[in-house]
């Protein structure tokens, strides 16, 4: 499914569609199991977000740990070759600025970073060449409830030429470097009309929580 289709579904879910477009989406949903599945996933995302936002940070910490546990220490391609699934997030997670980390503009790839004590990820330094490794993958796999089947999906993988092209693209704002210290964080972009707004989302330290939740 291409990004336009995903965008349309997201707009539909957000209530941003005009009536005519909404009707068209509904017809599409009626005849496409894939579209229905994707819509269900988007709805699940919203529900999870709402649910988790009401809960203590302990849960998020556990989830984050489980996510990070699946992020290896190698480069993107290594991870990809290892059978991981590249993230293919929806528009609110995927439309990265072209420059900066060259994450999702090239290929709808989410970036999930975690540093331990100070390494800095710089857009101009691919992880493999970083002198401050080990750091993180620019592409992460995420734990799933079932074994993953089949090879990694190449559709979302950023190729070097794509990344380079993206790097030269014109953007309004781009993240050049980030150091999350001992904490966790995520970088993504949010569509704001013609521009994309980069977002750094910090995982705040829960003051009292020590619990761990099972991964989703």
């Amino acid at each position: 499914m291409n990004r336009d289709a995903e965008d349309r579904l997201m707009r539909y879910l957000d209530g941003d569609c005009e009536p005519a477009e909404a009707a068209e989406v509904e017809r599409w949903l009626a005849r496409s199991p894939e579209a229905r599945a994707l819509l269900a996933d988007f709805e699940t995302a919203g529900e999870l977000v709402r649910e988790v936002s009401h809960q203590g940070a302990a849960r998020a910490d556990g989830i984050a740990d489980s996510v990070m546990a699946h992020i290896g220490s190698g480069g993107t391609h290594d991870h990809h070759a290892g059978g991981g699934r590249l993230l293919r997030p929806g528009r609110w997670l995927a439309r990265a600025p072209a420059a900066g980390l060259a994450l999702a503009a090239a290929a709808s790839v989410a970036l999930f970073l975690r540093s331990h004590g100070g390494p800095v990820l710089r857009a101009s330094e691919p992880p493999a060449s970083s002198s401050r490794a080990p750091l993180v993958l620019p592409v992460a796999t995420v734990p799933t409830a079932e074994p993953q089947a089949g090879p990694a999906e190449p559709q979302g993988a950023p190729s070097e030429p794509q990344a380079a092209a993206a790097d030269e693209g014109e953007v309004g704002a781009s993240i050049e470097a980030v150091d999350f210290g001992g904490g966790n964080g995520t970088i993504f972009v949010v569509s704001s009309g013609p521009e994309e707004t980069p977002v750094v989302w910090l995982m705040d330290e829960p003051p009292t929580s020590k619990g761990r939740m099972k991964p989703l």
């Binding site: 996933d41 995302a45 936002s53 989830i63 699934r85 993230l87 989703l216």
Partner: peptide, 22 residues
């Protein structure tokens, strides 16, 4: 398909579970 799509959702959930009631 579905689980693959849920992957980024888990990331989203992880990054949003931040609210500490006060």
């Amino acid at each position: 398909m579905r689980l693959e799509r849920i992957g980024p959702l888990a990331v989203l959930v992880a990054m949003l579970g931040l609210a500490v009631p006060r």
